[in-house]
Structures are given as structure tokens and as C-alpha cells.
Computed example of a mutant assay.
Amino acid sequence: MNPDLELSQFDYELPPELIAQSPAAHRADSRLLHLDAGGCLHDRVFTDLPQLLQPGDLLVFNDTRVIKARLNGCKESGGKVEVLIERIIAPDRALAHVKASKSPRAGSRLLLANAFAVEVAGRQGELFDLVFPERVLDLLDRHGTTPLPPYIEHAAESEDEARYQTVYAREPGAVAAPTAGLHFDERMLERLKAQGVGQAFVTLHVGAGTFQPVRVRKVADHIMHAERYAVPPDTLSKVRETMAAGGRVVAVGTTSVRALESAAAQLASRGDAAPFETLEGDTRLFITPGYQFAWVDALITNFHLPQSTLLMLVSALAGMAPIRRAYTHAVHSRYRFFSYGDAMFIESSAS
């Protein structure tokens, strides 16, 4: 990591009205800003994506499923609490962010959704260890609400339950959507498959830490949040075959990038050429300019918050100056930003 990078180098001015508060009428209706390998910008629409991909390319999707991770309730003393599940660590246990006027103590109980009580077993750093009376996922499905990002101003509605979820989501565990995948519908997936573009899946359970601001001046001093990832053998084989044949590995979303690059690092450290089991673990991989990508050649992504780790990641792939130009252009051209916003197709500056 470049020790001289400063947070101010990843800032930009964003008019608040460009933050998308609701999704497009249809998933593939969004605009698409293409940043090619030479640093040139092209204004497109998302349905143009097949024109930017070639037979033999491989799209890698994150199949995590957003859980209804937000719960409201009260302490035994009557004080209000807001609970946001961060990670399920056992069938009846989860780590969570708890907002309250006074932090609950170990051994105390929280009544949630006027329906059930959880016990506070203790803390792990900023997170509270909560014990549920039955399976966490079952209780969340019945009583929780969709955890929309903090910059979306309305409370979660029925539309959000469907649209803040990819059409291929299958592994429950995320508390934020892998938003680049929100643009894909079944028609687009079939169109790309018929074109000869491969498809593979990883799982990375996106945590609430993805929205945490970077609070240090020197980027190298930032401590990255941990997220659970898994890359199955089938995906590893497809990546290896694509690279050997000269195709491109195209990550759908920054979470797919982090899963793939974490698996590449894990594989390199083990020295295995062809593992027969899933590569998985917790990753704190922090990708900043200067990072050498092992597997990822291109990226489909949304527009990211100023001074965020995700903006640093896309700057590592395309170069800081091209990303700065792209974001300036996107603001001037009134693209829609963040989770429900428009998309980018970014080709590596090294490709």
C-alpha cells in the first residue's frame, strides 16, 4: 500500500439530489458509464452491456442474500433500542450494532419487535453478542425489516424487499446489497449466456461496515472491516480456464472483487494450483491504488461515496486520474449515485 495516499485525494462534491432514493422502474433501465482501458469515457445505458463483453469473458456475481437485519425494540428498563444485525455466528446467535441512550449490559435482555426477547451475552469490540430464543434467520424473516443504507431517507417498503436484492441472491447473510448486481434481470442474464459470456458465483456477506467512513488522514492508517467470503471450486476452475484462454474476468461489484482477490491471495499463500474445496474465510483486504490485481480484469459497479474504501478500490483498478474524471463527468451529466443509482463498466488500466 502506498503510504503517501491521503483521504482528501478521494473526495468529490456530490449534489444531494443525485443520491438515488428509489430504484429505476425496471432493473436494466439504468445508465451505464463506460471507462475504457485507455481512460476514455462513453455514456451508455445498461442494456448496452452485451456490446462491451465478448464470448469467453467471465462474469463473477456475489450471490449473497440480504437479510431483514433491522429490528426496533426496548430494554427491560423501557429505553428504546435499534438493532442492526452484522453477522450471524450460530443458528441462534448474532453480532449486532445496538443503538440506545445507554449501552445494554451483559446479561440484560432486549424486547424486539414486541414479539421476542434476546439476551446480551457480551461484546466483541463495537458489536453486541445477542442470543436469540430460536433461529435468528427465522425471527428476522418474520419480524425484521430491510436494512436500507443510511443515505436512503425513506423507511423500507415492500418494493425495497424485492428491489434491494439481486435476482440471483441465494445465500442469506448480508446486511447490505451487492448493488452492482441490482441492474441484472433474468432477460439480461440469459442474453449474456447465449452470447457465450460465462457466469460464476462467489459469496461475500456484505456488512454494515461498508458504509463506515474513513476517519484517518493517511489512508494506510485505516483499519478495514472484516467480511465473510467463500469461493467454490467451480468458480475457481472457471476463473483459471478464462485466464488461460485469454478471456477477461469481470467482477460484478466490489464485493466480488474482494472475494476473488482474497481467494487468489489465499491460494498463493498455500501454493495450491487446483484446490478441490471452497476457499473461504474472513477478509480485511483493503485495495488501494498501487494494488496489483491477480484475477480481476474489469468491473461492473455503482458510483461510490466520497472518501470511501470502495472509491479507493475502483481507483486502484482504473487509476486515480481516470476515476476522478469519470466522477466529475457523472456529476455534470446527472447520473444517479449509490445503491439505487446508475452503473459503471470499468476496464483495468493495466489490461
Rank of each mutant, 00 (worst) to 15 (best):
P55L: 08
K80G: 07
V249T: 15
S158R: 08
G247S: 12
E6C: 11
P149Y: 10
S339H: 06
G125Q: 01
T283V: 10
D234M: 11
T203M: 04
E17L: 02
Y168R: 07
F286M: 01
N72S: 10
V136H: 01
M224F: 08
D160R: 00
R44F: 13
F211T: 04
A268F: 03
A177R: 00
P150L: 07
L204N: 04
E277F: 11
E227W: 03
G173I: 05
F337A: 04
H329P: 14
D160N: 01
S349E: 13
P289F: 00
L7H: 09
G181N: 09
H222V: 04
H154C: 02
A194C: 06
H26F: 13
V250D: 09
F116I: 10
G290L: 00
R70Q: 10
R170V: 14
A96F: 03
S351H: 05
L311C: 07
G73S: 02
Q212Y: 08
D138S: 10
N72I: 07
L112P: 04
G196D: 00
R336Y: 11
T288Y: 05
D48A: 04
A251G: 11
L267W: 08
I89M: 03
L32T: 04
Q124T: 14
R270F: 06
E76I: 10
L35Q: 06
E186M: 10
A226T: 01
K99L: 13
C74N: 02
A230S: 08
A330R: 05
K193R: 14
S349K: 11
F276P: 01
T203G: 03
L130A: 05
C40Y: 14
P213H: 06
M1D: 13
F184L: 09
V216C: 09
S351V: 14
E6R: 11
R324Y: 08
S348A: 09
E153R: 12
F61S: 05
V83C: 05
Y229L: 01
A162V: 13
R217S: 15
E171W: 04
P306G: 08
Q9A: 14
L14Y: 07
H97I: 15
S348R: 01
R324L: 10
C40P: 01
G246M: 13
A343C: 12
A251H: 08
A326Y: 11
P275A: 05
T145N: 05
V83W: 01
S237H: 11
F61H: 08
Y340K: 00
V197K: 00
V314T: 11
H332I: 10
A343I: 11
K75T: 12
A37D: 11
P232F: 11
F61W: 12
R248V: 15
V252D: 02
F276D: 11
Q51D: 15
V252I: 15
R87Q: 12
L18R: 06
R123Y: 15
G38H: 09
K68P: 02
P147Q: 09
D185Y: 04
L130Y: 03
V250E: 06
A106K: 13
I223H: 01
D342Y: 02
Y168P: 08
E13I: 03
K238Y: 06
G125L: 03
L310W: 03
A69I: 04
V83M: 03
D234Q: 14
A117K: 15
F276T: 14
F128G: 00
G73M: 02
G125H: 03
L313D: 04
L127W: 05
A244L: 12
E13Q: 00
E159R: 03
L110S: 06
